Simulated assay, not measured.
Amino acid sequence: MRAVTVRPGAKDSVEVGEVPDPVPADGDLLVDALAVGVCGTDKEIARGEYGTAPPGGERLVLGHESLGRVRQAPPGSGFSAGDLVAGVVRRPDPEPCGACARGEFDMCRNGRYTERGIKELDGYGSEAWRVEAEYAVKLEPHLDRVGVLMEPTTVVAKAWEQVERVGARSWFEPQRVLVTGAGPIGLLATLLGIQRGLEVHVLDRVTEGPKPGLVRDLGATYHAKDIEQVISAVCPDIVIEATGANEPVLASLTGTAPYGVVCLTGVSPSGRRATVDAGAVNREIVLQNDAVVGSVNANLRHYRQAADALAEADPAWLERVITRRVPLERAAEAFREQPDDVKVVIEF
């Protein structure tokens, strides 16, 4: 069968090639792929900056944002042929730390976890794949065109859970949210904020293309002004930071209303320096009882939360988030950015 593979550490080594057909072990689902999403992590791996092949192998099958249809399911697994499913990305370490042992493998303490399509495990970017039943999550049938957004939705489902858990340290009734960045993570964070009945504002640099309309059609407010102006005008109770860029990160730390919560989800590149008045940042956070939390990856609980959020969303809006669909034979094109890209997927 065909798969999208890369040689980790080698720049521009993405290719579509033949790999062995999957052989399910006891308790596994056999799944026919429908699509995989391409995100910043995939592009970093394609540039040779990241990624690890399975032990003893030279190439890694890409694809951690999965969507497929079950071909075979073991009896008693809770799945049946024809079910729409996504596969979980991370697996706990072999000698689990306390977090992994309790199912919180997104919070692994020792770094010995593995990840499909990223770290030591082949991904879901092949015409068929196997997945342990306990690491598969079912989606509603009507999401067959957009369920590939499941994994990025898990990231923001966890981010919202973290915000709400931090807020619950005391009385917490947030009203205004600022989401920085209108890429897939920012848009899906906005969706979940709107589903919570909050007033959501979104900041991005562009004034044209699909992003402003996607934000406004959710009922949120789109801004393309200076971050300092926007955060001063909005005075958010919550900031979901989804850019990783210096200015919005630093402005978010000191720009919330008192007792605000900032959740950082954007991964910043190294080497971008900024001059910061650390004393002023510290003073603001301490005197306002603010909290800052970083969030990445997701566990099974967040996958189920994401499945519920997508089931509740307007499929037509979700369809618009996917701005480019690339057939498997031209998969390399999915890693080359185009001006109006939001989410790019490879279709099987």
Rank of each mutant, 00 (worst) to 15 (best):
Glu104Lys: 06
Tyr259Gly: 13
Gly51Tyr: 03
Val14Ala: 00
Asp217Gln: 15
Val36Cys: 11
Glu140Trp: 06
Leu287Asn: 10
Arg47Lys: 15
Ala298Cys: 04
Ser66Met: 07
Val131Arg: 02
Pro327Met: 02
Asp314Trp: 10
Phe172Val: 08
Ile240Gly: 04
Glu241Arg: 08
Ala35Ser: 15
Met150Glu: 06
Val292Tyr: 03
Ala278Pro: 01
Glu127Arg: 15
Ile118Met: 00
Leu121Tyr: 01
Ala86Gln: 06
Met107Val: 05
Thr190Arg: 00
Val155Gly: 00
Arg169Phe: 12
Arg109Gln: 14
Leu60Asp: 04
Leu300Ser: 05
Ile285Leu: 15
Leu178Thr: 09
Gly76Phe: 10
Pro236Phe: 09
Tyr303Glu: 04
Val36Asn: 02
Ala309Ser: 14
Cys235Gly: 12
Lys225Pro: 01
Ala251Asp: 08
Gly197Leu: 12
Arg59Asp: 07
Pro96Ser: 12
Ala242Arg: 03
Glu319Asn: 13
Val234Trp: 07
Gly48Leu: 06
Ala274Val: 14
Val215Thr: 08
Leu121Gly: 01
Val200Asp: 04
Gly9Phe: 06
Ser77His: 10
Gly219Phe: 13
Val89Lys: 01
Thr154Leu: 08
Glu241Gln: 09
Val179Lys: 01
Lys158Val: 05
Leu84Arg: 09
His64Glu: 00
Leu310Thr: 02
Ala274Lys: 12
Arg145Tyr: 00
His142Arg: 14
Val296Thr: 13
Gly98Met: 04
Glu347Ile: 14
Leu198Tyr: 12
Arg130Ile: 07
Pro210Phe: 10
Ala53Glu: 01
Glu18Leu: 11
Val321Ile: 15
Gly213Phe: 09
Ala224Gln: 05
Val206Gly: 07
Asp226Tyr: 10
Val4Trp: 00
Arg320Pro: 06
Gly111Cys: 07
Ala53Phe: 04
Ala280Pro: 01
Pro152Ile: 12
Gly186Arg: 02
Pro269Thr: 05
Ala220Trp: 04
Pro248Arg: 08
Thr154Gly: 05
Leu121Ala: 00
Gly279Lys: 03
Gly82Lys: 07
Val344Met: 12
Ile194Pro: 01
Val262Asn: 04
Gly186Asp: 02
Val163Arg: 06
Ala316Phe: 07
Pro24Gly: 10
Gly27Gln: 04
Trp317Arg: 07
Glu228Leu: 13
Ala334Trp: 11
Ala274Tyr: 05
Val321Asn: 02
Asp32Gln: 14
Asp26Glu: 15
Ile227Pro: 14
Thr207Phe: 01
Asp308His: 13
